[in-house]
Each structure stands twice: as C-alpha cells, then as structure tokens.
C-alpha cells in the first residue's frame, strides 16, 4: 500500500495530467462535434506545439515568448490544414477522413523527425516555475502546480468562448445539428475553419505547457492522442463539459493507479471506459443517438 504523501502527490499529478488531457480532448471533441471529423493528427499537433516551444526557448530563452509565438504558429498551421486539406473531406465517409488526418499526422511527425532528429530534446522550466512548494506535509514541484492553474484558466477561457459569445453559440448549435444552423442563415463552413483552428491551437498550447516536464520527441503525441480519445468517449462525443470532466477522471485514474502499479495505469483507464460504455454508451455528458 503506497504511503499517504505518495498518494496525495499522485493525486496532484493526476490533476496536472487531467487538466492537460481536458485541454487536448476539448479541441478534439469540438472538432469532432462540429465538423464531424475525428482528427487523428491531434497528437502530432500536440507534439508540434512542444517543438515550437523548444525552438523559441532555445533561441530566446523566453517561455512567455514561446507561448505567444507558438500559439500564433499553431493558428497558422490550423488554418492551412483546414483550408488546404480537411475542408476537402467534409462530405466524405469517415474512413476517408480518418485516413487523411492519420496521414497528416504521420507527415507532421516524420517532418519533425527529419528536421530535429529522433533524439529527445528538453525545454527548460521557466524561471517562475523553478523549485518546489511545500503544501503542508507534501513537497510539490512549483511548475506542475502552476500548470494546473494555467490550464484551468485556459479551460475557463475556452468555456467563455463557447458559452458567452455568438461564435460559441454557433459552435454549440453546430455540434447538435449543423444542417439546421445552415437553414437558419449561418454559414457553418466558415465557423468550421474557426473551430478547427481553435482545436489545433488548444492541442499545440497543451504541448507547449507540457514540454518542460516531459522529454520532447517526435512520437510524444501518440499516447496523448489515444488518451484524449478515451477522454472524449468517457465524457461524451462532442461535449465540452464532458471533455473537461473526462480529462480529470482519466488523469486521476492514470496517476493514482501508477502509485500502486504503473504497468496497470492504462489498463485501468480502458477498464473504466469499457465499464462506462456498457452502463452509459453515450458517455457522461453525451446525448443519445449523436455522432
């Protein structure tokens, strides 16, 4: 039986991982919900964000600049990808969409490998995230603690965009019934560009924030992609609250299980997903008969 401080520390790790998974998964889920496209390139875009952060911090040493330049870069990537590729596949069968996004993911991963090599790179922890904080009887790395706050703030911004703006209204309606949104005079395709770009930026920024606490390498996104899929299945396809709650649940399951036996953390995650699919196939926040 693991000690109480270890369990507590793992619970915090779960929170850090969970909020990040929530951010990655929310991009995935609003793209799926609105565009109907399952974006298999999402993990590669997460990785691309981490590399953007690596390049900027290596050149300038500024983490803050890394976020700004990185987010702008991801926005451009998102727009180019949607206009140049994804858009051509909206009317196509799901198999085609999966193949094309999967292919785009491979191209991005191999492109990064060709440019930077297969070696792992490291991104330094920003100056304001150095050291450890004492939380009662637990010592916890400062950056990880700050990460929880930063990602929570980003999730809140995403919430405001989705629930307090006209664009968000169109996106939420589009997730339910894109055809009816068009019948009400709204050019849904135009909002598709925005949704896709927003999802790509969310994935990229997650990678940037995560970069200092993991080794940055070309394949780092693949496990995140799979976990993000599990998150949106748990939360309900196309549901933003589902992505957030699902992310937190998945993060805690992985981290707490690791405290007992790390080999079982993923197994436990799939077991919970399987159980949920039996009891509530539409996911926690999903509506029946959708997607």
């Amino acid at each position: 039986m693991p000690s109480a401080p270890l369990l507590l520390s793992q619970a915090f790790n779960g929170l850090a991982l969970g909020t990040l998974l929530a951010l990655v998964a929310s991009g995935l889920t609003i793209i799926l919900g609105t565009l109907g496209v399952l974006n298999f390139a999402h993990g590669a875009l997460f990785m691309l964000g981490a590399y953007a952060m690596y390049v900027v911090t290596a050149q300038t040493g500024s983490f803050f600049l890394g976020i700004l330049v990185g987010a702008a870069f991801m926005l451009v990537v998102g727009v180019v990808l949607e206009r140049g590729l994804i858009r051509l596949f909206y009317g196509r069968p799901h198999e085609d969409q999966i193949l094309v996004t999967f292919g785009a993911g491979i191209v991005i991963v191999e492109g990064v490998r060709a440019l930077f090599g297969a070696n792992t790179q490291s991104v330094p922890t920003p100056s304001w995230g150095q050291g450890i904080v004492q939380l009662g009887f637990l010592f916890y790395p400062t950056y990880r603690l700050e990460l929880i706050g930063i990602v929570a703030a980003l999730l809140f911004v995403l919430y405001l965009i989705l629930y307090r703006t006209s664009i968000g209204l169109v996106v939420r309606a589009g997730i339910e019934d894109a055809r009816m949104v068009g019948i009400l005079g709204i050019n849904v395709r135009r909002s598709f560009l925005l949704v896709f770009a927003l999802g790509v930026v969310a994935a990229g920024v997650s990678g940037m924030l995560y970069a200092p606490i993991v080794s940055v390498e070309p394949d780092m996104g693949s496990s995140f992609l799979v976990e993000a899929f599990v998150v949106i299945v748990i939360g309900g396809l196309g549901s933003y609250p589902g992505a957030v709650v699902g992310g937190l649940i998945a993060g805690e399951i992985i981290s707490i299980t690791s405290a007992f036996n790390s080999a079982y953390s993923e197994v436990m995650l799939y077991a919970v997903m399987a159980l949920l699919l039996v009891l509530r196939p539409q996911g926690l926040f999903g509506s029946e008969g959708r997607v």
């Binding site: 209204l169 309606a173 339910e176 009400l184």
Partner: peptide
C-alpha cells in the same frame, strides 16, 4: 423552412435558440 422534426437545439435554451436564429 420550419422543418417537420422542428430541429430545436436541445442543448441550447429557448432564448439561445432565438438569438442564434437572429444572428444573420
């Protein structure tokens, strides 16, 4: 068109349904 299945956005409130329709 007011479709047969009504196509109300179930996740949106009545007022949000109306504001959405008024947007354009």
């Amino acid at each position: 068109l007011v479709p047969e299945e009504r196509a109300i956005f179930g996740q949106l409130t009545v007022e949000e349904n109306l504001r959405l329709a008024a947007l354009t």
